[in-house]
Simulated scan of single mutants.
Amino acid sequence: MAGEKNDGLVLLDFWVSPFGMRCRIALAEKGLPYKHVEEDLFGGKSDLLLRSNPVHKKIPVLLHDGKPVNESLVILQYLDEAFPETPSLLPADPHARAHARFWADYIDKKLFECGTRIWKLKGEPLMQARAEMLEILKTLEAELGEKEFFGGEHGFGFVDAAFAPATAWFQTFESYGEFSVAEVAPRLAAWAARCGERESVARSLYSPDKVYDFIGGLRKKLGVE
């Protein structure tokens, strides 16, 4: 792309996006320097974003030497492949890699989708979303089991990086859904605390209070409240 020549990495992002957060975590885990470009998703998306992701027109987008890579889970896999000398997020074993991809996809299609419904809805639809979220959290806790991280022997890995941003949103889900992650899935809450102790996660996420305040303002704009 003309005008975007760069010998490094550029991340087009929006601060509160859990999908952008996971890319920040992955880049930090790998120790890869990059330029962060904050997009104004409400005031007008940049021409760079619209050219880089003409299909979905959304963040995150990773530019590598000016070439765009779209969709956060695709970006995480791309970073493993493009920078094989850095710590791998995915395990080496093909079955373990497929297993990790399955759970990361589950997190996107189930947890984040349900979480959005929790803060957007009211009444019976909200209660239905709440019930679904409780089951999703229990399912994820069962997958975690007694492991320190979802990566198991591999350590903090692909699923952890994909899921960790949700911990910044837990307060929002809990508040509007009227439940406690610590009560529903205590091992998952302990995992969230361990993630928060990692430098890659701590420096990539915004505080739950700030996320909650942002969503409160967004609910008012959308007429939910």
Rank of each mutant, 00 (worst) to 15 (best):
K5G: 15
G8E: 04
L9V: 09
L9W: 02
L9A: 04
V10Q: 10
L11V: 14
D13F: 01
D13H: 08
F14I: 10
F14G: 02
V16G: 00
S17I: 06
S17C: 00
P18H: 06
F19A: 00
G20R: 03
M21A: 13
R24H: 02
R24P: 03
L27I: 07
G31Y: 01
G31I: 00
P33K: 05
P33N: 06
H36R: 15
V37T: 02
E39A: 04
E39Q: 09
L41Y: 07
L41A: 05
F42M: 13
F42S: 13
S46I: 03
D47L: 10
L48H: 10
R51D: 13
R51P: 01
V55C: 07
K57C: 05
K57F: 03
L63W: 12
L63P: 08
H64E: 11
K67E: 15
K67D: 10
P68K: 14
P68I: 09
P68Q: 12
P68E: 12
N70L: 14
N70D: 12
E71A: 10
E71Y: 02
S72W: 01
S72V: 04
I75W: 11
L76E: 04
L76G: 09
Q77L: 13
L79G: 11
E81V: 11
A82D: 10
F83C: 14
E85H: 10
T86V: 11
L89E: 07
L89N: 04
L90F: 03
A92G: 13
D93F: 02
H95E: 11
R97H: 12
R97Y: 14
R101Q: 12
R101V: 13
F102G: 01
D108E: 08
K110R: 13
E113A: 14
G115Y: 01
G115A: 11
T116V: 14
R117V: 09
W119T: 06
L121R: 12
K122I: 06
K122Q: 12
G123W: 08
G123S: 05
G123Q: 02
Q128T: 10
Q128L: 05
A131R: 08
A131C: 05
A131I: 04
M133L: 08
M133G: 05
L134K: 15
E135L: 07
E135W: 01
I136A: 06
I136Y: 03
L137G: 05
T139K: 15
A142D: 06
E143H: 12
E143N: 11
L144Y: 01
L144P: 10
L144K: 00
E148A: 09
F150I: 02
G151R: 08
G151V: 06
F156A: 08
G157R: 07
F158D: 14
F158V: 14
F163P: 02
T167G: 00
F170Q: 03
T172W: 00
F173W: 00
S175Y: 06
E178V: 15
E178C: 15
F179H: 07
E183Y: 01
A185P: 15
R187P: 09
R187Q: 03
L188R: 09
A189Q: 05
A189F: 05
A189K: 03
A190C: 04
A190I: 01
A192K: 03
C195V: 04
C195R: 00
G196P: 15
G196H: 03
S200A: 11
S200M: 05
S200L: 05
A202T: 08
R203Q: 12
S207F: 01
S207T: 13
D209T: 05
V211R: 00
V211N: 02
Y212P: 04
L222I: 04
G223S: 02
G223L: 05
